[in-house]
């Protein structure tokens, strides 16, 4: 180090101060959501606002879960997201492995195609999907929604998993095959265990993609009891009297599972997202 100790400490303090202030401002909307979710209704209708809740309460979470029926919607979202993930991972493992290991005609074109579809606006798919689902009787059904989510999650999972499988040296498989393993056996015994972290990361991304989705869920599901969590929250602001404290509690309930996943998956996020090109 060429810098004097004094200069280094001054720089460290400056960087920390700048980051602290910026992070605080950035997290302010989230903090406000948390604080509001802990306030009784009367307190949210005060102006100027009370910054910290005067009478903090968890009542809003219970109210959101029961009165806003978020319990039902939570289960709906969970089911659709898990099924979407399952389909994307099973098909993605097959396609991703084939693309990683076999030479095929049109492989490059196929990969390009996968990338391009990720860049189309969602309405381009939504309009024909609505008509198709309507004719197949799959509107207002979880199955229809899961099928439509596969449009986004499958290309993404094929792309990501291909990358993970390619990172495993093919010599490992070849050795197993010389020892008499079939390809299928080599895949399940060697490739799957070695790429487990990659598959887990892909699964988490697919899950979140479905969990956070709004536009398709808002359009393809009509009946109230089949709504997804995000749609149910947004629908509640057209009520005559919006209870923002309960709504923010509902927002927290929707967000917490995702944030927990993210904190675990941090190191995969940059690579995974820029390569697979997920929509924001």
């Amino acid at each position: 180090m060429y810098l004097s100790k004094k200069k280094r400490i001054r720089r460290a303090l400056l960087v920390h101060a700048a980051l602290f202030v910026l992070t605080f401002i950035i997290l302010l909307p989230v903090l406000w959501m948390i604080l509001t979710s802990l306030k009784p209704t009367a307190e949210t209708l005060k102006f100027p606002s009370t910054i910290l809740p005067e009478n903090p309460t968890f009542q809003n979470y219970l109210a959101a879960w029961r009165n806003m029926r978020l319990g039902t919607y939570f289960v709906n979202s969970l089911y659709v997201s898990l099924m979407t993930t399952f389909v994307a991972i099973v098909l993605g493992c097959m396609g991703g492995y084939a693309l990683a290991r076999f030479r095929m005609k049109g492989e490059k074109a196929y990969l390009m195609f996968i990338l391009v579809t990720r860049m189309f606006p969602a309405v381009v798919f939504l309009i024909p999907f609505f008509i198709m689902m309507r004719n197949l009787g799959l509107t207002d059904s979880f199955t229809g929604l899961i099928i439509s989510y596969t449009v986004f999650s499958l290309p993404f999972s094929i792309w990501l998993l291909r990358g993970f499988f390619r990172n495993i040296p093919s010599e490992l498989e070849e050795a197993a095959r010389i020892d008499g393993c079939t390809r299928a056996k080599a895949f399940t015994r060697i490739i799957l265990p070695l790429s487990a972290p990659g598959i887990a990361a892909t699964a988490v991304f697919c899950f979140i993609l479905a969990w956070n989705e709004f536009m398709f869920a808002n359009t393809l599901i009509m009946s109230d009891s089949k709504r997804m969590l995000t749609v149910a929250l947004v629908a509640s602001i057209s009520d005559f009297l919006v209870k923002w404290n309960e709504l923010m509690a509902g927002g927290m309930i929707t967000t917490i599972p995702v944030i927990i996943f993210y904190l675990f998956m941090q190191k995969y996020i940059t690579g995974g997202l820029t390569e697979g090109s997920v929509k924001g």
Partner: peptide, 26 residues
């Protein structure tokens, strides 16, 4: 880790929390 949080929030929820921040009265 902390600055990642806004990006993890579902966009529908993020939009709702901004509507509350920008509420015309409170």
């Amino acid at each position: 880790a902390l600055i990642l949080i806004p990006w993890a929030i579902p966009s529908a929820v993020a939009a709702l929390s901004w509507m509350w921040l920008l509420h015309p009265e409170f």
